[in-house]
């Protein structure tokens, strides 16, 4: 099987707005991606025709109530059984920004013991408060579980931008420590906000742009096949997208975001 036989579903609903560039990223990594409205997906129940599901960024249904909450319920209501099957077969699911918020709200992350009936974590209002669009440094924290970053060397620092107002990863205070230990124990930590030199942000702004617990920028489920992150890898795919590319003698061809899409393509090829 070649990469171009990998079928990617980029799902959208009202308010999704990063679908086009996410599709472009998947295709530039050789995969065969299409953008499908959730209504179409539900009507023709075709979700299981795909090898990869990507929930892209945006403001699904205006992000009223809580960011991602409405779309999460919509997905469970319209695609519940298919999503469960998709996940149980360890077909990879990627949630970017609003997609990460959806995965949390849908109980698909952190998914300590199976799909949770209610959110086990939350992506709270940024601290400092407000929408924030800026480039961040992320440190690769995973020890091999997450299939989306297999091609990134351990503890390597990557540069990818964030843009959100609700990205502060938190647990309920009473089980904060327990759950954080679980994340570490299950090797579910994937990216943590850090300085250019790899030193953890330790909650400091702007390196940690939203006040996330433990500088968490992205996590995966215990199987490593469901991955959610606040930063936008599709916005760091090409060299000309980078914030300082003009200072390079020659323009770099690609940015760090590309490795994520390449890794997932490799995983799917290996799996099938």
């Amino acid at each position: 099987m070649n990469r171009n036989e990998i079928k990617v579903c980029i799902i959208r609903t009202a308010g999704t707005n990063c679908d086009a560039e996410t599709k472009r990223a998947c295709q530039n990594s050789g995969m065969n991606a299409e953008i499908v409205h959730i209504n179409e997906l539900a009507k023709n129940n075709t979700l299981l025709d795909y090898d990869l599901l990507v929930i892209p960024g945006g403001f699904s249904h205006g992000d009223y109530v809580r960011a991602g909450a409405i779309w999460a319920k919509q997905i469970l209501a319209k695609l519940g059984r298919d999503i469960e099957k998709f996940a149980n077969e360890e077909r990879p699911i990627l949630g970017i920004c609003n997609g990460f918020q959806v995965l949390i709200e849908a109980g698909l992350l952190p998914k300590f013991n199976g799909i949770a009936p209610f959110p086990e974590a939350a992506l709270g209002t940024n601290f400092p408060i407000g929408y924030n669009c800026r480039w961040t440094y992320l440190r690769h924290e995973n020890k091999g579980t997450c299939v989306f970053i297999s091609k990134i060397p351990p503890s390597r620092v990557v540069q990818i931008p964030v843009a959100h107002s609700e990205g502060r990863f938190i647990f309920k205070k009473e089980n904060e420590n327990e759950y954080l230990e679980k994340l570490k124990g299950n090797d579910q930590l994937v990216f943590r906000y850090c300085h250019e030199n790899g030193k953890y942000a330790a909650g400091g702004f702007p390196e940690n742009p939203n006040g996330s617990l433990h500088d968490i920028a992205g996590i995966c489920d215990p199987t490593g096949t469901i991955f959610g992150l606040m930063p936008h890898p599709e916005r760091a795919y090409f060299g000309w997208q980078l914030p300082t590319w003009t200072s390079c003698e020659r323009m770099p061809l690609f940015g760090d975001g590309k490795i994520i899409f390449d890794s997932i393509a490799e995983y799917i090829l290996g799996k099938i």
């Binding site: 707005n17 990063c18 086009a20 560039e21 472009r24 990223a25 960024g57 407000g130 929408y131 924030n132 669009c133 800026r134 931008p161 843009a163 936008h232 599709e234 916005r235 795919y237 000309w240 997208q241 003009t246």
Partner: peptide, 14 residues
């Protein structure tokens, strides 16, 4: 400026 998303669509070169 940082409260505006100047990166969405992934086509912002400068």
């Amino acid at each position: 400026v940082c409260t505006y998303d100047y990166e969405v669509k992934g086509n912002t070169v400068l």
